[in-house]
Simulated scan of single mutants.
Amino acid sequence: MAARIAGPAIAQTSSHPYRRLLWHPAAWGRLDDWRRNQADLPGRAEAIRRPVEIGLKAKV
Results as ranks from 00 to 15, higher is better:
residue 6 A to G: 02
residue 57 K to C: 05
residue 21 L to I: 13
residue 48 I to R: 07
residue 43 G to E: 14
residue 34 W to P: 00
residue 26 A to F: 08
residue 17 P to D: 10
residue 18 Y to H: 11
residue 22 L to T: 11
residue 29 G to H: 06
residue 60 V to G: 12
residue 51 P to C: 02
residue 29 G to Q: 07
residue 11 A to C: 05
residue 47 A to E: 02
residue 47 A to D: 06
residue 46 E to A: 15
residue 26 A to C: 03
residue 32 D to R: 12
residue 16 H to D: 15
residue 59 K to P: 01
residue 32 D to M: 03
residue 50 R to G: 00
residue 58 A to G: 06
residue 39 A to V: 08
residue 30 R to K: 12
residue 8 P to H: 07
residue 30 R to M: 14
residue 34 W to L: 08
residue 3 A to L: 05
residue 48 I to G: 02
residue 53 E to P: 01
residue 11 A to R: 10
residue 37 N to E: 10
residue 51 P to D: 02
residue 11 A to Q: 07
residue 58 A to M: 14
residue 6 A to Y: 02
residue 3 A to S: 04
residue 22 L to H: 06
residue 10 I to Q: 01
residue 45 A to M: 01
residue 37 N to T: 12
residue 32 D to A: 09
residue 60 V to K: 13
residue 9 A to K: 15
residue 33 D to L: 08
residue 44 R to L: 05
residue 38 Q to Y: 00
residue 37 N to M: 10
residue 45 A to Q: 06
residue 38 Q to L: 04
residue 50 R to Q: 04
residue 5 I to Q: 13
residue 11 A to H: 01
residue 46 E to N: 11
residue 56 L to E: 14
residue 39 A to Q: 10
residue 59 K to Q: 08
residue 39 A to F: 04
residue 37 N to L: 12
residue 16 H to V: 14
residue 48 I to V: 15
residue 30 R to V: 08
residue 31 L to F: 04
residue 34 W to F: 10
residue 2 A to K: 09
residue 11 A to G: 06
residue 36 R to H: 04
residue 26 A to L: 11
residue 52 V to E: 07
residue 39 A to L: 12
residue 29 G to T: 08
residue 48 I to T: 12
residue 38 Q to G: 00
residue 54 I to M: 11
residue 3 A to R: 11
residue 23 W to G: 08
residue 31 L to R: 01
residue 7 G to V: 03
residue 26 A to M: 07
residue 21 L to P: 03
residue 15 S to M: 08
residue 10 I to M: 03
residue 56 L to A: 14
residue 18 Y to L: 07
residue 42 P to W: 00
